[in-house]
Design a protein around this nucleic acid. Structure first.
Lengths: 231, 231
DNA sequence: GCTTGAATATCGCCG
DNA sequence: CGGCGATGTTCAAGC
């Protein structure tokens, strides 16, 4: 990522034509070639930008531009469309480059985390007599969403998804294999819990002796709200 | 505007809950207090952000965070809602501040300018036999969008708008009054061209003997593309 | 000021 | 890869 703070003007052509009069701005050049032009206010949206895939060519100003103070002309061309962003750079106040690496990305823990929280609080949904051991029960291959004790002995491992797909069943299967090696927990039964369980996932789960549990998010929130009002 | 490149992790709560695992990112703090967290890829949208109005408070990490390597904790709180973004900063690789001043902002010369360009290239849309005199034909009260020669003698003045409103008809009327005083051009007929013409504008234009011409932007672009392919 | 609709929308899911 | 819907949407125009 390259960060440039400079006096600049820009012209964009693509779906529309637009231009930015000369002003001091932040120019961000990302590793994928995309470019953002940011002012010191507004929302997260840049004044102008070019989305990837695109390429940046640094050129020389012509005589007229040079006389006006332009030191560099950047042409950012989209690889697939004819979208083009041309930036005239005047005085450059800052210019630095940074290695950032690949980003793990944003994790939205909205619904899934909330479902885990709610199911832990309403552990009886697994069946009468179950007790919570803990959420995010650690194993060598990652934490299990919920681990509970079954009333008749043995344990229950729960994998929670917003949408229950085959991947989730596979994940739970790996956990179960590991957990069942632990004599303090064994036998460990599996519960695949989700707001919506795909037919293929249900077939696979059932075939492996895993119980499917469809979670009614609104109903669970309702119970939670009632609890909250009681205390 | 402050630019920080640092190892960081973040948590956002507001309309949803989300978190960013630790990674090296760009943190932009704008003059209005808004904050952007950018990775080295993706689109112009930040991984996470806080929109203005908001305030940034820099705090100390607690013992546990300090042991994990956190050096600063930034809390960005929205002024009107309970939206909050908390950023844990680990190693800081870059930190600089820049005065940018007020930005004049983006000027969209998109559709109207493009329509003028396209109509000039497809001047036959005014009727068979018309020839272009010039775009932006200068008058004492400003340039007329397009001036053309009519096949039977006389001229045609065209006012182009994206959305044709009464104001545009008034504008064209003023131009026509002026242009008709010029014996080299007279008689000058008026054409009011727009992607969409409001009923009131159409009534006024018709009443004044001005022709209304609805422009099909996509079709005109299509013709333009065909031309481009031929050359 | 509120409401409505477009956006260089972006983003994720589903077929 | 194309289509559809949601977005912490943002943004501008109309009323």
């Amino acid at each position: 990522m390259r960060l440039v703070v400079a006096e600049c003007a820009a012209r964009y052509t693509g779906r529309l034509s637009a231009h930015l009069p000369r002003a001091r701005r932040l120019v961000v050049v990302k590793a994928d070639g995309s470019v953002l032009l940011h002012s010191d206010g507004g929302s997260y949206k840049p004044l102008n930008w070019m989305s990837p895939p695109c390429s940046l060519a640094v050129g020389e100003p012509d005589a007229e531009q040079r006389a006006a103070g332009v030191t560099q002309v950047w042409t950012v061309q989209h690889a697939k469309t004819d979208d083009r962003l041309v930036i005239d750079l005047y005085e450059v106040h800052h210019d630095s480059a940074h290695e950032l690496g690949v980003d793990p990305g944003l994790v939205k823990d909205g619904v899934e985390a909330h479902l885990q929280e709610l199911l832990a609080a309403q552990i009886g949904l697994l069946g009468s007599g179950h007790t919570l051991v803990r959420r995010e029960y650690p194993t060598a291959i990652g934490p299990v969403d919920i681990l509970a004790k079954a009333p008749g002995g043995g344990s229950v491992a729960v994998e929670i998804k917003r949408r229950g797909d085959i991947d989730g069943v596979e994940q739970l299967t790996r956990y179960l294999e590991l957990l069942n090696r632990d004599p303090r927990l064994s036998p460990v039964r599996g519960v695949f819990a989700a707001q919506e369980i795909k037919p293929q996932a249900r077939v696979l789960a059932t075939d492996r002796g895993i119980t499917c549990l469809v979670l009614d998010y609104d109903a669970m929130r309702g119970v939670d709200d009632v609890d909250a009002r009681l205390f």
